[in-house]
């Protein structure tokens, strides 16, 4: 069986993939709450968040993996800190996952290439910023308040997202070079040959 766009399989997701994606989602929420680096720069959370999404997608390599991470993370966030945003909390996590999925397919799943991973993660982090802006507008928060610092925030979101992608690419390359990926998640070639 041959799969396109760098995928190694299709739906339904095997249990190991579901477990991995759930773990990644849990890690994203845990890092959001527990890891508070002393960096007062907007978008810095994208370094870990987008990095984790890409690692999840890069290991599972099935359509919709990023969206799945987004849905599960969104549900966890909605349960843990819903606030006034309600379901919009989930949307914040869902959209970057969808963007990462679409770009993963567009770039043929080449996450081992640092520049591809950087572009995908930067785009996902920018999508997060855009969602925050539009959610704010939907909630009736003054556009002037939302726009304050938006220029710098967009630039830093881009940079931190790209750094997250770079880190994810390094992790995936390391997993691949040590053979961990091929042992637990068969490579495309191996699956094709079987």
């Amino acid at each position: 069986m041959t799969y396109k766009n760098g995928y190694i399989g299709s739906w339904p997701l095997p249990v190991r993939d579901q477990v991995l994606l759930a773990l990644v989602s849990g890690l994203i929420i845990a890092t959001r709450i527990a890891i508070r680096p002393p960096i007062r720069i907007p978008g810095h959370s994208g370094l870990l968040w987008m990095g984790l999404i890409l690692v999840g997608i890069g290991v599972v390599r099935r359509p919709g993996a990023g969206t799945m991470i987004g849905i599960v993370t969104g549900l966890l966030a909605t349960v843990m800190y819903p606030g006034r945003l309600g379901i919009f909390v989930g949307v914040r996590y869902l959209i970057p996952g969808i963007v990462a999925d679409l770009l993963f397919a567009l770039f043929g799943g080449q996450l081992n290439r640092a520049w591809v991973a950087m572009i995908i993660a930067a785009s996902a982090n920018m999508a997060k910023l855009a969602v925050n802006y539009f959610v704010g507008l939907t909630l009736g928060i003054p556009a002037g308040f939302l726009a304050a610092g938006l220029g710098v925030a967009s630039t830093t979101h881009l940079v931190f997202g790209a750094l997250g992608g770079l880190a994810a690419s390094a992790v995936l390359n390391h997993l691949q070079s040590t053979g961990a990926l091929s042992r637990l998640w068969p490579m495309k070639g191996e699956e094709m040959a079987s």
Partner: peptide
Amino acid sequence: VLVATVGIAWLLEASA
């Protein structure tokens, strides 16, 4: 698209 988005963000801030 990314560069355009950053540009729009700076424009929005400037207009605000």
